[in-house]
Design a protein around this nucleic acid. Sequence first.
DNA 1: CGTCTATTTGAATGTACTCAAAAGCGGTGG
DNA 2: CCACCGCTTTTGAGTACATTCAAATAGACG
Lengths: 198, 198
Amino acid sequence: METENLPVTALLQYFEKIFPLNNQEREEIAKNFTERSVKRRAMILQQDDICKHFTFVVKGCFKMYVVDMGGKEHNLQFAVENDWITDLSSFYAAEPSNVYIEAMEHSVVLQIKHDDLLELYIKYHKFDRNFRIIVERKYIELQNRMLQNISLTANIRYIQFIKKNPHLANRLPGSQIASYLGITPEFLSKVKKEIAHK
Amino acid sequence: METENLPVTALLQYFEKIFPLNNQEREEIAKNFTERSVKRRAMILQQDDICKHFTFVVKGCFKMYVVDMGGKEHNLQFAVENDWITDLSSFYAAEPSNVYIEAMEHSVVLQIKHDDLLELYIKYHKFDRNFRIIVERKYIELQNRMLQNISLTANIRYIQFIKKNPHLANRLPGSQIASYLGITPEFLSKVKKEIAHK
DNA sequence: CGTCTATTTGAATGTACTCAAAAGCGGTGG
DNA sequence: CCACCGCTTTTGAGTACATTCAAATAGACG
């Protein structure tokens, strides 16, 4: 079936893994999510803009980061295929964002507009539930990352990262992983070296 | 009105701030949440137990922490009045928990059992929504904390912590805050000293 | 092949930790 | 009221972890 390859199919399959959908719900998803192709280095959100979309990654890879007073970037999160990326804070409060969301590869996303999502929440019980579950899972992940950050050394944090995200580890430049782990690229290089000859 | 002082009133008011409740929903809350008094140092969850309750803090203060291989405790989160504390991962997956949740003061909580909450989700659209919103807010907070951890020095992290949680800063022993910030109590003491004479 | 960017190296510095010991600070009992 | 206990906080010296800055190498791509 050629429909297998449509971007929206990936999203439908994603939802079906949480809860089965009926035809009406499938149609609503197809109707409310807009496909968009994003070139490498293009931003789907910039600081001071209001985050107007909830974004599902069909293909490619994004990073969300903040830029500090010294101009340094700090990666808050990556998102690859079948993951969501959005500045929740700006999205729901309709306030200017503090973050950037940038494509690290040529990517394809499906986006739903704020107002349309709120409408879905109202019309279909299931979307409140699905998005509750999505955020709960992301919260658990983030809490685990937090734990590692307060309890482990950079060396071990890096080992855990590549163990948990083997695909990301070779897909992303090391400097980006360093930023995510909260260390400098130079130090990551030394960490790698130390791990290598053991 | 004497009902003003009932623990469940605090919870009803909490929900009303998110969405107005009707009488039926108020009754369901009163029926499904159980009041419980917890003594200082008592645990409402221990490692290897399955987290069976979602807990709302009416009065008092809790910490959630893990114990590492070296026997050190690392605080993942505090919860005071009008906050929630639960090991989401263990709660939804019904798997043994990795964390402890301990009362730091004599406390009063309202707890809902896993199965009862799932039933509420099914029967009342609004609970899916309320808990979606609760988790979204906690996710945003946690993401901000994460950002600080990967981008700021302990010194600044501590200053931000007392600025953001002035009540907690004098309610908790410094050693507990140190554990939350991911530093040793000794180093926190030095940080305080440095901040003091400026 | 040259250009651009990412990675690696090294030396010097700063940030945070360990361990051990001293000082402060409620209680509690005499 | 004081002496003592247990606990938290503070101090200090030595060490480990991580950063900065500058320069050298290595990879990717046109």
